[in-house]
């Protein structure tokens, strides 16, 4: 499991990796294929492997109508990441390392929180937001979406932070660092991987959320892409190529963001922030 092996020895792994990825992404390819297919060819038998007779109608509609939604989704996703980490990291730290009373009970509550159907949460938020006037605001949606990721984030941080060697913390305490400084200068940098994971989850959940968006943000000017798609599902017709085109257009920037973010963080890790 170390680097610096001659590349010749790992090329087959790359090949295998590409193969797995291709297999995994086949449905995504199929979606892209449909996005270019004319309605009359949608259900052709046998199906067309490749859109020989493509139409760009779907993309034209999407680029014209859906770009603001895409921006909203990105904004909500990133906002949710920030909020989740700001809340979950200190909470996980407190639970894992500060020996709080009732930590176990709290842990259980967090687990139970995952079991509550999202609709129940959405209903609660609706009632509160009506009074606070937060309906149809991006901020409100970010707060709501982060309730999916925060309990999970706390659980994950707790699980990982309890694995941090106590000696590290004791050393810091001997240096006179308080709980907060220990957290900032030792625990947080060491938990970089966990932060990445939590951030990833927060982003993906916020990105794919439908229930909160449709409950809390339905009539806003800024609707996320998961709602934007419903524009193409009319009462009696379904514009498949527009739907699929929306999904393609929406997943490309998000995928790029994921790749770039991972590279960036991975670079930070190897630059020596953490010593294994």
């Amino acid at each position: 499991m170390t680097g610096r092996r001659p590349l010749r020895k790992t090329w087959w792994k790359t090949a295998l990796g590409v193969f797995f990825t291709a297999l995994m992404l086949f449905p995504a390819y199929w979606m892209a294929n449909v996005s270019l297919t004319r309605t009359s060819d949608l259900r052709a038998d046998p199906p067309h492997w490749f859109p020989w007779n493509p139409t760009l109608e779907g993309y034209a509609a999407v680029l014209e109508q859906q770009l603001p939604s895409l921006g909203t989704s990105l904004l909500v996703g990133l906002g949710c990441v920030a909020l989740t980490i700001v809340v979950a990291a200190p909470a996980g730290y407190a639970l894992a390392l500060l020996n709080l009373r009732g930590g176990r009970a709290l842990n259980f509550v967090l687990l139970v929180a995952q079991m509550i159907p999202a609709v129940v949460m959405a209903m609660g938020f609706y009632a509160i937001y009506v009074r606070l006037g937060l309906l149809n605001t991006v901020g409100g949606l970010i707060v709501a979406d982060s309730t999916i990721a925060v309990p999970f984030g706390v659980l994950l941080y707790t699980a990982f932070m309890s694995g941090i060697p106590r000696e590290l913390l004791q050393a810091a305490r001997i240096d006179g660092a308080g709980a907060w400084r220990t957290f900032r200068s030792i625990v947080l940098p060491v938990s970089r991987n966990s932060t990445l994971t939590v951030a990833l989850f927060a982003f993906l959940w916020a990105w794919s959320d439908f229930i909160f968006a449709s409950t809390l943000n339905r009539n806003g000017d800024l609707i996320p892409i998961t709602l934007g798609i419903y524009k193409y599902i009319g009462n009696n017709t379904t514009q498949w190529n527009s739907i699929m085109a929306t999904a393609v257009v929406a997943s490309v920037p998000a995928a790029i963001l994921l790749v770039v973010a991972q590279r960036y963080v991975a670079a930070g890790v190897t630059a020596g922030a953490v010593k294994d």
Binding site: T21, P27, M31, W207, A250
Partner: peptide
């Protein structure tokens, strides 16, 4: 985890299914 050329990119690509709205992936 065993690390090879492109492993980071490929791993990120594996997350794409998650980015698709459920109605899209299920219909597909």
């Amino acid at each position: 985890r065993s690390g090879f050329r492109l492993s980071g990119v490929l791993r990120a690509m594996f997350l794409v299914p998650w980015l698709l709205p459920l109605i899209v992936s299920a219909s597909t």
